[in-house]
Design a protein around this nucleic acid. Structure first.
Length: 415
RNA sequence: GUGGGCGUAGCUCAGCUGGUAGAGCACCCGGUUGUGGUCCGGGAUGUCGCGGGUUCGAGCCCCGUCGCUCACCCCA
């Protein structure tokens, strides 16, 4: 019996895990600069948080959730997305009672029982932010700018930003009427018709050529915005212009979660496969109320860490190899080991990155180990070093050694 | 849920029309006493995904099964 990881999960190990960690850090750092604070939340919630929050009609809820009964007979679901859980926590703990907006960020694993493919996993990772309680279009622009900055931090360039407005409920009602009429005349198969029944906008997202062709003349939601929605959207665009953020208006963009209203956006990478969405988000003005909170608007995003890493790799951006050791210690003999174990510990506490060759390896093998580790310096410690207190510090790049007093070595010795 | 591709050493893969398993990388040891990278020599490693069938003989053919992968639906 050989164990295997469950289907469709992503796993990261060296050197790739170093890049993964860096992606996560860089994606979230602009949010910290903008005053967003960490929210550490459970990865599972009462199932209803998602069915009511995300919407029964979505694929995410209807067929992709990991749902189970816990020992108390409660229905629990592994979180398929972040926003609904954030809302639950904000409402439950009254975070929305203070100054608005509430600005939070989160990061961690999410779960969707989908058929895996390139860039799509059953356990995947996101960082996300939410700004709750403000419907100023400036906050829309801020949220988008934070995502954009995260990608730029990593050095990504081959991506684009699509934005649109999904309008308020009045806008959508007006549009839905004409859209449904348009769709009813199309020749669609049964499964597609059933999907459209739930949310006619979905048809804009269909990749099948025949459908794309049929939808070419479909009425666009963006043409049915109420004056308020249209003006909000205009201001978002104006602020993005001021920020120098380039975007494309994509009126055919569809978000997969039902709670989105107004501004919606998506970052799409051009070198990824079918799953090219790096991240996306939007405004969700009715979500909080539908989860039993007060009627506050909000906007946020979720950025896929896995996909962003894939994008970095596709662009040839190297994010690994920056945690190389300062020093690699090679003790020879038992006495040397006695000495080294403390010597190394002192250096680490002094802030140096130190690795060593335990296990009584032959010197040649140990030096190889020093080489492979990428250490800046190596030092061999044997009987003579211990008795004299002086060792040869070897610069691994130049191959040059220089005598040093062991007791004088500290974290600064390696610069 | 639907469709395509692929499962051979730790990794990447080769293996012609069936004849009894290989390369590169990585790993370990050595090339005169305690100094890496290059070079040279040596070494370990596989139920050829699993089960069945055809055959004197199957990694190669047939059937089934499991897994991985890419794509559709959908999405991060």
């Amino acid at each position: 019996m050989k164990f295997q990881a469950p289907k469709g999960v992503s796993e990261y190990f060296p050197e790739r895990s170093i890049a993964f960690e860096k992606v996560r850090r860089e994606l979230i750092s602009p949010a910290k600069l903008a005053g967003y604070k960490l929210l550490e939340l459970p990865v599972f919630e009462d199932t209803e948080v998602f069915t009511r929050g995300v919407g029964e009609s979505t694929d995410v809820v209807s067929k992709e959730m990991y749902t189970f009964e816990d020992r108390g007979g409660r229905s629990i679901t592994l979180r398929p997305e972040g926003t609904a859980g954030v809302m639950r926590a904000v409402i439950e703990h009254g975070l929305d009672r203070g100054q608005l907006p509430v600005k939070v960020w989160y990061s961690g694993p999410f779960f969707r029982a989908e058929r895996p493919q390139a860039g799509r996993y059953r356990q995947f990772y996101q960082v996300g932010i939410e700004a709750i309680g403000l419907d100023d279009p400036a906050i829309d622009a801020e949220v988008i700018a934070i995502a954009d900055a995260g990608y730029r931090n990593l050095g990504l360039t081959k991506f684009r930003l699509d934005i649109t407005s999904l309008g308020d409920s009045a806008s959508r009602a007006a549009h839905r009427e004409v859209l449904v009429k348009y769709i009813s005349k199309l020749d669609l198969d049964e499964a597609t018709r059933a999907r459209v029944e739930l949310n006619p906008l979905r048809l804009f997202d269909d990749k099948r050529e025949a459908v794309v062709k049929m939808m070419a003349g479909a009425p666009l939601l963006i043409d049915y915005l109420t004056p308020q929605s249209a003006s909000h959207f205009e201001k978002v665009k104006k602020y993005l212009d001021k920020l120098g953020i380039r975007y494309a208006i994509n009126p055919r963009m569809v978000r997969g979660l039902d709670y989105y209203t107004g501004t919606a956006f998506e970052f799409v990478h051009e070198l990824l496969g079918a799953q090219s969405g790096l991240g996306g988000g939007g405004r969700y003005d009715g979500l909080m109320e539908s989860l039993g909170g007060q009627n506050l608007s909000g906007i946020g995003f979720g950025l896929g860490i896995d996909r962003t890493l894939l994008a970095c790799e596709a662009e040839g951006i190297d994010l690994t190899s920056q945690s190389r050791p300062d020093l690699y210690v090679i003790p020879l003999g038992e006495e040397a080991k006695d000495f080294s174990i403390k010597f190394i510990d002192d250096l680490r506490k002094n802030g140096a990155i130190v690795d060593c060759a335990y296990g009584d390896r032959a010197l040649k093998g140990a030096m190889k180990g020093a080489d492979k580790s990428g250490a800046k310096f190596a030092i061999v410690i044997g009987d003579s070093e211990i008795s004299s207190g002086i060792g040869e510090l070897k610069n691994m790049e130049t191959g040059v050694t220089s005598s040093v007093t062991l007791s004088a070595i500290n974290a600064k010795s390696f610069n």
